[in-house]
Design a protein around this nucleic acid. Structure first.
Lengths: 350, 350
DNA sequence: TATTAGCACTCAGGAGTTAAGAGTGCTAAC
DNA sequence: GTTAGCACTCTTAACTCCTGAGTGCTAATA
C-alpha cells in the first residue's frame, strides 16, 4: 500500500471505486470484475476493470478477503468515499418525520430526544445514540415538596426547560409540615433562576446555614436533598435500536453480538466517546476509533448547539459497511432540527 | 411414552432423575450412564443406570438427542422435577439484597420495581420482567401547572404513591396566567383523592362543563389534558437483563437471538402473558406456554398483592434448562418483599 | 431376583478429499 | 490503451472415513 503520497485517481478509477463501495454497502458481498463489467454505468471489460482494481488495491482503497476473491472496500477506501465520493444527498422527507415530532410542541425536550433516537435508528437500521443536552443554560424553576403521608413526601424539581425530576423520601421525625413549608419557600427564594450546574455551590454557601435553623438532624436530610438536587450525571444518554444490528449480516456471529451488547452496557464509556467528539459532523471508520470496542464499527457524530455552545451529540453506530450517504444527510438534518429546537425552548426563558 | 397413568418411581429412579436434571441444568450437556455411575451419590454400575434411564425415558421424563446420545430432561421431566424434586431452598442472603433496596425507604415505588428487576436478572442471569403495580388504590394527590414561558407550561401530576408524571404543553393564546391558576385550583378541588382509574369519568362529567367557562378554545386543550391525565396504559413493564440470555449456551444461534429480541420488543404481548398469570407462584415450562414465541423457554411468575388484591406480577424468563430451585425461592422471596412494600406505601395514605 | 460385565451397534462430529465456481494475474493480441 | 484467453488460486459444499461416547441386549454373577 502506498502511504504518505497524494494519490490522484483517474476519473474511471473514481467511478469504479464508487460503484464497488456502493455495491458492497448494499450487498455486503465481495464483488468481482466480471460482475462489475456487467453493470450499466461501467462500460469496460472485465479485464480493464481488473487492472483498475489492482491499482485501487495498491493504493489501499480495496482489499481481498483471500487471493482469488472479489474486492471489498478497505477502511481507507471508505474514508476516501466519505471524503470525496458522496455528494450532498437530501433525505428531506425522512428528516421531516423527525421535524414533525420536534415541532409538535407538546413534548418535553427529553421526550423529543428519546423519540428522535428511536426514529433515527428505525430509519437507518443502525443503533442511534444521543447525548445531552448539557445544562449550561438550564436553571431551576421551582422546587416543591409534597407530603404523601405522615412520614413520607415527594420532592419535585422543575427546570426552565420543562425537565422534571422527583424523588420520594422519608420526612425526619422532628420536622412538621410548617417547617417543611418554610424550608421549601426559603429554597425557592434562594435557588430559583440558579443554573443547575451551580446548584451545589449555592446550596453549600447560601442555603446550608439557613437550613440549619429549621432542622435538628440537619445533616442527613441535607445531604440527601443535595444528592437529589445535584445530579452527578446530569447529561443523559438516549439509545435507540440496540437490537437493530442483529439485522446486519456482519453480526452473524454470536461472539460479535455478545461483545456488542457488552459494550453497549458501558454507558459511561459511550458517553465519553460522544463528549469528546468535535463540533460539526464527524465520521470515524473502524480503526480510526480510539476505543477498542468499536474498532470494527463506524461512528457518525454530529453536535447540536445553543448560541454556539456545544449542547449535545447525536450519533449512529453501525458496521463500517454503512450507508454513509443516507446516514450523513440524515444526521445533518437532525442536528439542525435539534439546534433549532433548543433555540425555541430557551428563547422565552422566563 | 406412557401417559394418563399415575407413575410411581422407585427411590433409585427418583435419585437418578434428580441427578440427571441437576447435572444438565449445570452443564447443558447430555449425560450418559458411565459418567453418572462415577458420581458419588450414585453407587450403581453403568448398566444398572442404563436400565433405569431406559425406564425413565419410557415414562417420558428423559429424552435422547439421537439414538446413541446421553439423556436430557424432557419438559415432562422438568415438570416432575419442579413439582416433586426440589425441596424448599432458602436463598436468604440473596433475597436480602433486594430487601435492602426496598426498605431503604428513599426510593419511589417505581424505582424499587426497576431496581428489583435489575437485581433479579443479575442474580439469575435470566431476563426478569415485572408488571405493575395496578392503580386500583392509587389516587390523585395534586395537579400543578407551572408556566415556563409566555406560551409554554409544564403540567405535573402526583399520586398518593409518590408517582409523578409530567408533560409540557403550549398554552393556548387566549388564556392568561390567572385563568390557568383558576383552572388548576378548580381541578385540584374536584380531582384530588379521585382514584386514577376513575379520572376519565370524573373529568367528563364534573370537570368538563366547568372548564368551558374558562377557556374559549376549550376542546383542543381539554382533549390534550385528558390524554395526559388519563393514561391509556397505566400498567408499566420493567425489564431487566435483556441481554443476559446471550450468556446461555442454548442461545448459540443467531436466529434464536434474533427471535428472542423481536419477541421482547412486543411489550404488549408480554404484559398480557403476565396479566393472565394466576395468583401465587407459577412455573410454565416450554410448550406449556400458550404464546408461541416462548414455547422453548420457561417462565416463572409470582404475583404481589395489596389487601389480597392482585397488584402486579414478577416474572423470570429463561431456557427450559433453568435453575428452578434457586429461581423459585428467589421469586417467592421477592414477591413477599414487594407485597410488604406495597403495604408500607399505602399504609398511611393521606 | 437384582445387578453387573461384555459386546455389538448407532450416531454425531471432526478430519481429509474432491469438485465446482468465482475470481484473479498475466500475456498476447487487437 | 483495451480486451480476450488461460492457467492458477482459493472458498465452499458435498462426500467419505474414522473415532469416541453412548446405547440396548444377553449372559454371567451375587
Amino acid at each position: 500500500m502506498l502511504t504518505g503520497v497524494i494519490i490522484m485517481l483517474t476519473k474511471r478509477q473514481l467511478i469504479i471505486l464508487q460503484v464497488i463501495i456502493d455495491d458492497f454497502i448494499d450487498s455486503a458481498r465481495p464483488i468481482g470484475s466480471r460482475a462489475l463489467s456487467k453493470k450499466d454505468n461501467l462500460p469496460y471489460s472485465a479485464a480493464t476493470i481488473r487492472n483498475e482494481m489492482a491499482d485501487l488495491e495498491e493504493f489501499g482503497f480495496l482489499e481481498k478477503t483471500h487471493t482469488s476473491s472479489g474486492r471489498v472496500p478497505s477502511e481507507k477506501g471508505y474514508r476516501y468515499y466519505v471524503d470525496h465520493l458522496i455528494g450532498p444527498s437530501t433525505n428531506q422527507n425522512q428528516v421531516s418525520i423527525i421535524k414533525d415530532i420536534i415541532q409538535d410542541g407538546f413534548f418535553e425536550f427529553e421526550q423529543i430526544v428519546q423519540m428522535s433516537a428511536e426514529v433515527l435508528s428505525k430509519l437507518t437500521s443502525y443503533t442511534s445514540i444521543i447525548l445531552g443536552p448539557e445544562m449550561f443554560e438550564t436553571t431551576l424553576k421551582q422546587i416543591q415538596i409534597l407530603p404523601l403521608s405522615d412520614h413520607t413526601a415527594v420532592a419535585i424539581l422543575v427546570t426552565n426547560t420543562g425537565h422534571v425530576e422527583h424523588r420520594s423520601f422519608a420526612i425526619p421525625e422532628k420536622i412538621n409540615s410548617s417547617d417543611l413549608e418554610k424550608m421549601v419557600n426559603m429554597m425557592n427564594e434562594r435557588l430559583t433562576g440558579v443554573p443547575i450546574i451551580k446548584l451545589q455551590e449555592v446550596l453549600n454557601t447560601e442555603v446550608a446555614h439557613l437550613m440549619k435553623m429549621y432542622m435538628d438532624d440537619f445533616d442527613k436530610s441535607f445531604e440527601y436533598l443535595k444528592a437529589f438536587l445535584v445530579n452527578d450525571n446530569p447529561v443523559k444518554l438516549y439509545i435507540g435500536g440496540k437490537s437493530n444490528i442483529l439485522m446486519q449480516p456482519e453480526f452473524n456471529d454470536v461472539d460479535k453480538i455478545r461483545s456488542f451488547f457488552t459494550m453497549m452496557e458501558k454507558e459511561d464509556e459511550i458517553a465519553n466517546i460522544l463528549k469528546n467528539s468535535k463540533n460539526g459532523i464527524e465520521v470515524t471508520i473502524g480503526n480510526e476509533n480510539e476505543v477498542e470496542a468499536i474498532k470494527d464499527l463506524s461512528l457518525i457524530t454530529a453536535s447540536y448547539h445553543l448560541n454556539g455552545d456545544h449542547m449535545g451529540t447525536i450519533a449512529l453506530l453501525g458496521p463500517t459497511r454503512m450507508e454513509y450517504r443516507k446516514v450523513i444527510s440524515l444526521i445533518k438534518g437532525l442536528s439542525t432540527e435539534m439546534t433549532d429546537a433548543m433555540y425555541m425552548w430557551y428563547r422565552n426563558d422566563g
